[in-house]
């Protein structure tokens, strides 16, 4: 579906005040300050976003989403949901391996997905802080293989993570470059 058709569909379905096109340049989302070069992103109303997280999309949340998980304190899950007890929680002394697993368990629960490839975990500096980048794959219950790219760090004991995910076929590669640039250059206060 072309973006024009998609946005028209959104306007018809949800009313124009809900989805907002994200302007080029610097934007504040949660604790993050991020820069977008191309005006491809639309912010998703919280009622439509996975886990009620601040989320952006290019083609709709089932085709790609960029979710900002910010300011997660010790003892809290990553998502805002009513059945919180079902979700694993963050601890401020977690090492990147443990955070990677926390993100994957959260994704598995949120999307009723199976993690099909644990993927790669590497060090990454975000906003001058030592952090990590993670890439993995999961299969959702619509039988689609999706790929996720995650960048994150722990600053002042709080977890700050951005998750980009899209179907492995076509959609992930299409916007991965934009998503990665945005994540790598994100700034935290």
């Amino acid at each position: 579906m072309s973006r024009v058709v998609f946005i028209l569909a959104l306007l018809l379905l949800t009313g124009c005040e809900q989805y907002q096109q994200v302007k080029s340049g610097r934007n504040e989302v949660g604790s993050f300050s991020v820069t977008t070069e191309a005006p491809i992103w639309n912010s998703v109303p919280s009622g439509h976003s996975p886990g009620s997280l601040p989320t952006w999309t290019v083609d709709g949340v089932t085709l790609n989403s960029l979710s900002f998980v910010s300011g997660i304190k010790d003892g809290s899950p990553l998502v805002t949901v009513h059945d919180k007890s079902k979700y694993p929680v963050f601890h401020s002394d977690m090492l990147p391996n443990e955070i990677a697993e926390l993100v994957q368990s959260t994704v598995a629960r949120l999307f009723t997905a199976t993690i099909s490839r644990t993927g790669e975990l590497k060090p990454l500096t975000i906003s001058g802080q030592p952090g990590f980048e993670l890439e993995f794959e999961f299969v959702t219950d619509d039988e689609v293989i999706r790929r996720a790219f995650v960048g994150g760090t722990v600053k002042n004991g709080e977890l700050q993570v951005v998750v980009f995910q899209a179907p492995r076929m076509h959609y992930f590669e299409k916007d991965f470059g934009h998503a990665r640039d945005l994540i790598v250059s994100a700034k935290l206060p």
Binding site: L95, N97, A100, T118, G119, E120, L121, K122, P123
Partner: peptide, 10 residues
């Protein structure tokens, strides 16, 4: 291992 670089960092 996919987390080799991370383990090297540790």
């Amino acid at each position: 291992a996919g987390d080799r670089d991370m383990i090297d960092y540790y």
